[in-house]
Design a binder for these strands. Structure first.
Length: 721
RNA sequence: GGGCGGCUAGCUCAGUUGGUUAGAGCGCUUCGUUUACACCGAAGAGGCCCGGGGUUCGAAUCCUCGGCCGCCCACCA
């Protein structure tokens, strides 16, 4: 037996053994008596990684945390299911593949056409999927591969169409012309949550608009402006009446301007007066809606100016901006320019471009519309009662049926719901679930399956990727069929994910599950932090500070990587990792290995009755206490504490003190002494190896197989906790 | 503009409901080839727990004011 644990050669073999045993599957566990038939369930669905490439260290942290919960539950005899899958991640994947194709071949998706392009994306997605599966196995994730799902596979697509149709029929999904976030680069809409704001310096122009002065960073939108808006209580503009019109000189000649009074105007900002461009600004759109004003499109879908811009028609807005400013100046309408104005620019965070708001006809989910929830298991909402999607989302958490941990995230969740607007779910990209609506002449048909008869044409848009993710806890269990799995495992026990997708995903799962099932999707939400480097910086390729979990596993073993992602960070706080830290836990794995080796080497079966000392009994009691503590910590999602306690007890107490103190007795003349020392050593070791297993499954499994009194074919992963 | 988190040893962080000399990893110093382990062992140095005020027999922990740093949300044209 080597003095070092050979993780490079053993980890894959160990994973194979687990997989072949079938114990990742709860049905097998029940059949083999590992879990009783009537045992409580413990179910988790894996937050499906995007098929955009590789797993990163954030995924590794997620896998480590979930594997701890799952292995712990399984060892405690619960009917345990951890259901794996991957996410097609519509916009992210499409954007990635478009980038690759453009770089390699200089072609766009339009050059290839919808069909050919989708083939390429699918090929890419398949390869990513295979890589992800390999990587998950490498990390030791004890997921049930027999139930693997994909957000875009046949079963999940059926669930999506079923959900869409139900919402459509009840008027919760509607098509409407509203202002949306338009990405001219990717040629698609993006939801509010997918935006990212970047602060930018830009010239800010003060323009004369009749008797008023208005400020803008976007003179290129001003061609159609004919409403001038001010706060109704602004004393400076008391003499102007709401609806009053006047003739003024504007960029393309004289226009009739109308005064509008609206409280949306901030009296303290600039001159307290603004003109509005309802087609290209969300606030302006709302003002226009409130007052029934005209809306005119100035910029097209590609970011080029329309004929309304006169001689600037056809020019890209970025090029046109300084020219337009020039014209204002030439006409004497430019009062002054502030060159160092800071403003926020919205960008599509999924690799897209700068957002240009546009009015477009899109599909929306109405979050405020009342409907009847026929059968409700959500506390606070009675069966048959009228409710809204917002109310469902709020109720499920408010009444404690769903607990979000750490607790502070509940507040953030409520805050988000309060501000929530209708969810734009249609995308003009190609990779994703096609909207199940067909048109023929003036007819519209929505159905789970295409309509019969010829001449129908399907809506070209696809759905926001989060629409299908919202169904994930039950689409993976066979819904819309009421399968055995669905009945046995839903609602899931825990949803474990990063706090960055609380809104994107967690909230939407509550929405979908609440609406479609009248049920919560999970009992608890545990949110982990973001993984950062040793100095606490975000990991990024440009900084070159990324840590590849696979490379680290090759170098130090997956157990070490897992532990380094668990220990040292409080629940919900960001997780810091560095190679030094990983190396430290690799050393711990070696320590466990060697202590176990020592125990095995010193064990000789004997019939002699052991002569325990009070110190022996104290040690054995300590281990029992440790188990209580570790169990309590895991139950509270405090993996950091549990791991830390195990680490220190094993190293500081067991290895440094207990083993040292037992050494003389192990070679004692007295057989009873020897027997007691051996027994204490082995019992303490076994118990600790068991407790360490959820954290470091590979080494502990390997050690378990060498311990005296352990049947050769028995697996630690299903040993009784 | 609103909200949240952080500030503890050189670096990165733990420290559940306030309770004895404040902890870890890495780093540092000295010593050590005692047959589990040098990916080790033993010993050690190193801290006005961001600052002020308060509550308390007792505060890193609770309250309050302030200072930095980070994050999220928001329609400031």
């Amino acid at each position: 037996m080597d003095t070092r644990y050979d993780y490079q050669n053993l980890e894959d073999k160990t994973y194979d053994k687990w997989e072949k045993s079938g114990y990742f599957n709860p049905d097998v566990c029940v059949k083999k008596g590992i879990a009783k038939k009537n045992a409580k369930k413990f179910s988790i669905v894996l937050p499906p990684p995007n098929v955009t490439g590789n797993l990163h260290v954030g995924h590794a942290a997620m896998l480590a945390i979930e594997d701890i919960m799952v292995r712990y539950a399984r060892m405690r005899g619960l009917k345990t299911l951890w259901l794996p899958g991957t996410d097609h991640a519509a916009i992210a994947t499409q954007s990635k593949v478009e980038g690759i194709i453009y770089k390699k071949e200089g072609k766009t998706r339009y050059d290839l056409g919808r069909e050919e392009f989708l083939k390429r994306v699918e090929k890419f997605a398949k390869e990513s999927h295979d890589t992800i599966v390999r990587q998950m196995k490498k990390m030791g994730s004890s997921v049930d591969w027999s139930r693997e799902a994909y957000t875009l596979d046949e079963k999940r697509s059926l669930a999506v169409r079923t959900a869409f149709k139900k919402m459509y029929d009840e008027g919760l999904i509607y098509k409407g012309s509203r202002i949306v976030n338009w990405d001219p680069k990717m040629q698609t809409t993006v939801s509010d949550d997918e935006l990212e704001y970047i602060e930018e310096k830009a010239p800010f122009y003060y323009l004369k608009f009749g008797p008023f002065t208005i400020g803008t960073a976007r003179p290129e939108t001003k061609f159609g402006d004919k409403y001038v808006v001010m706060h109704p209580d602004d004393p400076r503009y008391k003499k102007y009446k709401d609806g009053e019109s006047m003739q003024i000189e504007w960029i393309n000649g004289p226009i009739t301007a109308t005064v509008i009074k609206d409280k949306a105007v901030d009296m303290g900002f600039g001159t307290g007066v603004m003109t509005i461009t309802p087609w290209h600004d969300a606030t302006d759109f709302e003002i226009a809606e409130r007052h029934g004003l005209d809306k005119e499109q100035i910029i097209d879908a590609y970011g080029k100016l329309l004929p309304a811009a006169g001689e600037f028609s056809g020019i890209n807005i970025n090029k046109a901006r300084p020219l337009i400013a020039e014209k204002f100046k030439a006409k004497g309408l430019l009062e002054k320019v502030d060159e160092n104005y800071l403003h926020n620019v919205a960008v599509n965070q999924r690799g897209g471009g700068r957002i240009e708001p546009q009015i477009k006809e899109q599909w929306f989910v109405n979050v405020n519309k009342e409907f009847v929830l026929p059968k409700s298991k959500i506390k606070g909402i009675k069966s048959g009662e009228k409710t809204t999607l917002k109310k469902i989302m709020r109720a499920a958490v408010k009444n404690g049926q769903i607990r979000i941990l750490p607790h502070r995230f509940e507040k953030i969740y409520f805050h988000w719901i309060n501000d929530l607007r209708d969810w734009c779910i249609s995308r003009q990209i190609w990779y994703g679930h096609r909207i199940p609506v067909w048109y023929r002449g003036g007819e519209t048909y929505c159905g789970v399956n295409p309509p019969k008869g010829g001449g129908w044409e399907q809506d070209p848009d696809t759905l926001d990727t989060w629409f299908s993710s919202g169904l994930w806890t039950f689409s993976t269990l066979g819904w819309p069929k009421e399968t055995k799995d669905f009945l046995a495992f839903h609602p899931t026990s825990v949803l474990e994910t990063g706090y960055d997708i609380l809104f994107f995903w967690v909230a939407r799962m509550v929405l979908m599950s609440g609406y479609l099932l009248g049920e919560i999707p999970f009992e608890k939400v545990y949110l982990h932090g973001m993984v950062r480097d040793g100095q606490g910086r975000k990991m990024s390729k440009t900084l070159g500070n990324t840590i590849d979990p696979l490379e680290m596993s090759e170098k130090y073993g997956a157990d070490a990587v897992r532990l380094s992602l668990i220990i040292g960070s409080a629940p919900g706080n960001d997780i810091k990792v560095s190679e030094d830290k990983i190396r430290g836990y690799r050393n711990f794995a070696t320590k466990i290995w060697n202590a176990s080796r020592f125990a095995v080497m010193n064990y000789a079966p004997t019939k002699t009755k052991p002569r325990f000392t009070t110190a022996d009994r104290k040690r054995l009691r300590e281990v029992t206490e440790l188990k209580k503590k570790v169990s309590a910590d895991i139950d509270r999602f405090d993996f950091n504490r549990a791991g830390d306690a195990l680490y220190h007890y094993f190293w500081d107490v067991f290895a440094d003190k207990v083993i040292e103190s037992l050494k003389p007795r192990l070679s004692s003349e007295n057989a009873g002494d020897r027997a007691a020392a051996q027994e204490v050593l082995l019992t303490m070791l076994k118990e600790q190896v068991k407790m360490l297993h959820p954290f470091m499954p590979f080494v502990t499994e390997e050690i378990w197989g060498m311990l005296p009194g352990v049947r050769k074919e028995s697996l630690l992963m299903v040993e009784k906790w």
